[in-house]
Simulated assay, not measured.
Amino acid sequence: MSINGSQAQAAGEFTVAIVEFADARADLHAVREHVFIVEQGVPAEIERDALDPLCRHVIARDADDQPIGAGRLTPDRRIGRMAVLPDWRGRGVGEAMLQALVEEACQLGWHEVSLHAQVSALTFYSRHGFVPYDPRFVEAGIDHQSMRRRLDAATPVEGREAAQAALLGVIAGARRQLLIYSRELDPGLLDQSEVVSALRRFATGGGEIRILLQDTATPQRALAPLLGLGQRLTTAFAFRAIEEPIDRDYPSAYAANDRGGWYFRALGHRFEGECRMDDPARVRQLHALFEPVWERARPCSEFRALGL
């Protein structure tokens, strides 16, 4: 079955459904062939495997019932073969399919799902609560990263790369407000280009970012990128310094948005912690923890005069 992307683009809407492989074999293979074999040059003998009949599959269709996206859940509790036709990328198809597969895994009683993400798609999966683990590897000639997400609890965050993914997920999930409690603007995390870019996009899109700091001198000496960004976007960024002794003794650090996403580190000087993108109750707890400290803290007027 051939696929005409330009015809699919004109449809405008799509549906997503969990399907049996036997019922949708041709359509699933049509999407995957276009994306993996034609676009990415993956050998056909690698793309099609014996697992297909054993998997639960998701398919996306346009308003004319033509296939535009595909994905699957394998018996070893892994999401894979995620593919969306070019004209439908960036229109929510991938997100809808991923959510459908996660919900199916929950229905199956799974506690965790994993996946092998192409490195170019790391941010996409981070937005949905997946965090990296283990070293990167090459599969079918393409760089990949193992990622995982707990379904019934917070997902462990181990190391800087996982920490960055967790924070990017929290930022991407924010609607209007983002709260950050940090010791010294977290060198190695809040100064990374992807994180700074994500915060810039959120801020210029109308978002509000409140940042509480225990140590304001260290980021000043380091000329932390967020200070310059905050100076340019003064209506979006607000920095306050923690001065009360009872508040300065707090050992942890965290980021929380206003849509249920959070990343918490029990020891604020380390990257290790845990995160979850669908936990409004925990976010309410973190907001309740943040607000009184924010009210007691002083505005960082010294940041406005840095001349960065």
Rank of each mutant, 00 (worst) to 15 (best):
T155I: 10
A70I: 07
G141N: 09
L115P: 06
P132M: 12
G80I: 11
I68A: 05
F130R: 07
R89F: 04
A121D: 13
R72V: 01
L98F: 12
H111P: 11
R61K: 12
H116M: 08
M97L: 06
M82C: 12
S114T: 14
L101K: 04
A140L: 01
A154D: 15
E139F: 05
I68Y: 05
V119N: 08
I79E: 07
R148T: 10
R77V: 12
G109E: 06
D143W: 10
G71S: 10
P156G: 00
R77I: 10
F124M: 03
G129T: 06
P156F: 11
M97S: 06
E158R: 14
V157F: 05
P67K: 15
Q66C: 08
I79K: 01
R91G: 03
V157L: 05
Q107G: 15
D87P: 15
E112T: 13
R77S: 10
F124I: 04
G94T: 04
L101Q: 08
A121K: 00
L151C: 13
G92P: 06
T155D: 07
E95I: 07
Q107V: 07
C106F: 00
G141Q: 10
D87L: 13
A63K: 14
G109W: 11
V131I: 09
S146M: 04
P135F: 05
R148I: 05
V119D: 01
A96E: 12
Y133K: 03
Q66I: 05
L108T: 03
P75F: 04
G80E: 11
D152W: 02
P135K: 04
L115K: 09
Q145P: 07
A117W: 04
Y133E: 09
V138T: 15
R136W: 06
P132K: 12
D65A: 14
L115T: 09
L122Y: 11
G92C: 10
V157D: 00
Q145I: 02
G109Q: 11
D76V: 12
L115E: 02
A140G: 12
G90N: 13
H116D: 14
V102P: 02
R81V: 10
D62V: 02
R127F: 00
S146R: 14
G80P: 01
T123A: 15
L98K: 03
I79S: 11
D143H: 11
P156Y: 09
Q107I: 03
P86F: 00
A96G: 05
H116A: 06
R127T: 09
R89T: 04
D134V: 00
H128V: 00
V131L: 07
L101P: 04
R127D: 07
S126Q: 07
E158V: 15
D65C: 11
I79G: 03
V138K: 05
R136N: 06
G109S: 10
Q99M: 09
S146L: 02
W88E: 09
A154M: 09
H116G: 12
V131W: 03
G69L: 00
L101W: 05
M147T: 10
R72C: 03
P135V: 13
R78Y: 02
G109I: 12
L98T: 12
S126Y: 05
L122A: 07
F130T: 06
V157H: 02
R77M: 14
D62E: 10
R61F: 06
R91F: 08
V157Q: 02
